[in-house]
């Protein structure tokens, strides 16, 4: 009688404190039946990666609205990889210009969600693309 649950982490790397989206998503994920770990604001990439590993999450969602995603997001991907945890599905969100999508995909991100994405779209994407690992 196994009871698999999707575990996700919502993290805010960098110095920007615009956490409206991150917090709305955390609630939305809970209501979708996931177990959600939220890190709070102002995390370093190292903190994001190590927390994701300690919590054994299936997905790590990073939110950044300051434009620093270009450094911070690939940095988290790199750290996960170094620790053999690149099977954690990485997604990004925030103010991310179109031309930054490809470099993020190349860095290992599986999806980018920008402002205006309906919550259901994100939840459906997770249900389709994120499976509890064993």
């Amino acid at each position: 009688m196994s009871e698999r649950k999707i575990r996700v982490m919502v993290a805010k790397p960098g110095l920007d404190g615009h956490d409206r989206g991150a917090r709305v998503l955390a609630r939305c994920f809970r209501d979708a039946g996931f177990e959600v770990i939220y890190t709070g604001c102002h995390q370093t990439p190292e903190q994001c990666a190590s927390a994701a590993i300690q919590e054994d999450v299936d997905m790590l969602g990073l939110s950044c609205l300051s434009g620093a995603h270009r450094y911070l997001f690939p940095q988290v991907a790199k750290l996960l990889k170094e620790q053999g945890a690149d099977d954690i599905v990485l997604v990004g969100g925030g103010i991310i210009p179109d031309q930054d999508f490809q470099p993020l995909y190349d860095a290992g991100f599986k999806a980018i969600f920008t402002p205006g994405t309906p919550l259901d779209t994100i939840v459906d994407w997770i249900k389709t693309n994120v499976k509890p690992r064993s």
């Binding site: 960098g14 110095l15 102002h42 370093t44 300051s66 434009g67 620093a68 270009r70 450094y71 911070l72 940095q75």
Partner: peptide
């Protein structure tokens, strides 16, 4: 802590 943020 400021990495990647300067002037953004």
């Amino acid at each position: 802590k400021a990495r990647g943020e300067c002037g953004k």
